[in-house]
């Protein structure tokens, strides 16, 4: 019980800190803009956007299930990073159980979005694949499922790539079949995540 209360206190503190950083950046932006210091206002707005990206990332992590199949999430590997420039926030969670593991990576403004969408929506490109990938649907979203070479002949890893607006959702699972990864993917609330990051 004490540990639970302590954890809640930490989460609340982090959330307050994030809000303060955002409020501070906005205050700087407003002051600079009113003073005609456009470049300073620009920088402060970028800082504020980074803070929002971090907050969104943490909210997305809350939506991700703590457990996928028999695999448990490893909290110490949870990661949210925000970038200013051409790539947006990166959100990551890992799961593991015995010899099987899974990774969820969400990259906002991903440079791979255009290519992935082209493959999903261009039949010719799909036909030119090397036979190890196929187009599937996960919760109504078109996705690209790729079989990756496993460590032994009878064990394979799979990777699922799902464009969600301007973000790319990548789900990798080791030691599984294609139906197993799709079953695990169905447990992830993609629609709620898409709403948060769009």
């Amino acid at each position: 019980m004490k540990a639970f209360i302590f954890l809640i206190a930490i989460v609340a503190t982090v959330n307050v800190c994030l809000a303060q950083d955002f409020n501070k950046a906005m205050a700087t932006a407003k002051t600079s803009y009113s003073a005609g210091k456009l470049e300073d206002a620009h920088f402060a707005l970028q800082q504020a956007m980074q803070e929002v990206d971090l907050t969104i990332g943490k909210e997305v992590l809350k939506l991700l299930p703590p457990k996928l199949g028999a695999m448990q999430s490893t909290a110490k590997d949870d990661n949210v990073s925000s970038n200013v420039g051409f790539v947006g926030a990166t959100i990551r969670r890992s799961y593991a159980q015995a010899k099987q593991s899974a990774d969820i990576i969400i990259i906002d403004n991903s440079p791979l979005i255009a290519m992935t969408n082209a493959i999903l929506n261009t039949p010719m490109l799909g036909m030119m694949s090397h036979g190890k990938d196929k187009i599937v649907k996960v919760q109504g979203y078109k996705a690209r499922l790729e079989k990756q070479t496993g460590s032994t002949a009878d064990k394979n890893s799979y990777e699922l790539q799902i464009p969600l607006g301007s973000a790319l959702f990548t789900f990798k699972v080791t030691d599984c079949t294609d139906s197993q990864i799709l079953e695990l993917a169905d447990a992830i609330p993609l629609q709620q995540i898409a709403k948060l990051i769009e």
């Binding site: 809000a19 932006a29 620009h42 707005l45 956007m49 929002v52 907050t55 909210e59 948060l196 990051i197």
Partner: peptide
């Protein structure tokens, strides 16, 4: 942001950045 509508907050920030630029 105060209403926890982070997606809307991000969009408004993008618009503000465009305006400044």
């Amino acid at each position: 942001h105060a209403a926890k509508k982070y997606s809307d907050s991000r969009y408004a920030l993008q618009q503000a950045l465009m305006g400044v630029e």
